[in-house]
Amino acid sequence: MRIKKIHHVAVICSDYERSKDFYVRILGLKPVNEVYREERGSYKLDLTVNGMYQIELFSFPNPPKRPSFPEAAGLRHLAFEVDSVEETVEHLIGEGVPVEEVRIDPSTQKKFTFFPDPDGLPIEIYEA
């Protein structure tokens, strides 16, 4: 077996329109395809990250809450690489997104921080 790359990351949203606005307008991800799956009562929106990776946003009727934050077993957070953590933090704060204090990775000496998506999913920004 040889894995070539990550194909996509799927996120289930409690408020699809709010999450769509967050990921498209605030984070700047580009919509590729959006469909409503009537048989499931669910939207699916494919978003591209710099033309390479894909985030899939899903809406489902009454999705269950995360069992705990952020240390539940399973996927811990989604991380995006940015050129400038400070500029990204300034943009997020300007959009009303709460952002944690910027930290330095002790192994790489790179800056990083976290902020939540509309459902509280932890998102990290990590300086290139």
Rank of each mutant, 00 (worst) to 15 (best):
E34A: 14
I125N: 00
R76V: 04
H77M: 06
L75N: 09
E87F: 04
I3W: 10
I93Q: 09
R76N: 11
P122K: 03
R2S: 13
Q54E: 12
E101K: 14
L45P: 00
V102H: 01
E81L: 15
H77N: 09
N33C: 12
R37N: 12
Y126S: 02
F80H: 06
A128Q: 12
C13T: 13
L45M: 14
H91Y: 09
A10E: 15
T48N: 07
P98W: 08
L92G: 01
G94C: 06
K111E: 12
T113K: 02
E95C: 15
R40L: 14
G74E: 06
V49G: 01
R18E: 15
F112G: 00
E38K: 15
A79P: 01
P64G: 07
N62A: 14
S68C: 13
Y23L: 07
S68H: 08
L29R: 02
A73Q: 10
F114H: 06
T88R: 00
P70I: 04
F58G: 01
P116W: 00
R25I: 09
Y43G: 03
E87R: 07
R103A: 06
N33P: 01
S84D: 09
F112I: 03
S19V: 01
P31T: 13
E38M: 13
R40K: 14
A128D: 11
K30I: 13
